[in-house]
Write a protein that binds this DNA or RNA. Structure first.
Length: 253
DNA sequence: ACCATTTGACCATG
DNA sequence: CATGGTCAAATGGT
């Protein structure tokens, strides 16, 4: 009947919180989060669901937001044709990152659009995960035949690789996989068919009160740079080593 | 063998 | 009371 998306944000004043310029993945509501996690809530009153800061975002690539998530649930919503997927930061147990996100497919379009609702910012130190493993291998001589390799973070080698299922599913329709590099310098000119992330307010929705969205560089920027920068050999997908995820590390249920 | 995912049930919130 | 969200155990995959 009605979407109960909660946009309860604190105040926009924690600019220092996101001073790190290294964070350009997806843009949180402007770095609010004075609303501390459960820590703020004494045992007497757990953080009500409504107190949780969250921001919605529309995207075609809900799985590639620069962070690793572990799916912890799926539920079929009454008013939704598609089930809702629940994800949690893979570092939850190691870094107590309360960041979580829930996916909701909006349409069964060919390029399905998803509504991602993020909750809490990543306190795990924003792990560097621009995208799936992208390895550009420019030939030593001719750089016209640049070879791009798209690898899913689930190859072999690392056993700690969340997002095995999800990735497989979306991989088939990931707009990113359809990237084509022409000889021209500027390739992205026509047909912006896909926008990595749409703003929740852009939709037919009556301005959901989208947060500041600040400079939002979004990972697309990364791609842009990548597209114009692959002059030398670059190596994306820095999968150092993920922390162990002891399955569940509940604080206090 | 390990880990992430999967599915169902339980709990919490509204 | 209903819906949504999270937990929890099992299975599969690597």
């Amino acid at each position: 009947m009605k979407r109960e998306e909660s946009f309860e944000f604190g105040e926009l004043s924690a600019q220092d919180a996101m001073g790190s310029a290294s964070e350009s993945s997806y843009s949180p509501p402007g770095a609010i989060f004075g609303v501390s996690p459960p820590e703020s809530s004494p045992r007497g009153g757990r953080n009500r669901r409504r107190d949780r800061p969250s921001w919605v975002k529309l995207t075609y690539t809900p799985y590639f937001d620069g962070h690793l998530w572990r799916k912890y649930g799926q539920k079929k919503i009454k008013d939704a044709v598609f089930p809702r997927l629940y994800f949690r930061c893979s570092y939850r147990g190691d870094r107590q990152c309360l960041a979580s996100k829930l996916l909701q497919q909006k349409n069964g379009d060919d390029p399905p659009l998803y509504e991602v609702t993020y909750t809490y910012e990543h306190t795990c130190g924003a792990p560097p995960v621009p995208f799936p493993d992208i390895v550009a291998e420019p030939p030593p001589t001719a750089r016209e035949g640049l070879v791009l390799r798209f690898d899913s973070p689930g190859g072999h080698g690392d056993s700690q690789t969340p997002q095995q299922g999800p990735y497989h599913q979306s991989t088939s329709r990931s707009p990113f996989m359809m990237l084509s590099f022409g000889s021209s310098s500027q390739a992205h000119d026509q047909q912006p068919a896909f926008r990595s992330d749409l703003e929740a307010g852009s939709s037919p929705l009556p301005d959901e009160g989208q947060p500041p969205a600040n400079g939002d560089g979004d990972m697309f920027s990364t791609w842009d740079s990548f597209t114009y920068d692959f002059d030398s050999h670059m190596h994306f997908g820095d999968h150092s080593h993920l922390p162990y995820n002891s399955n569940y590390d509940y604080d206090d249920y």
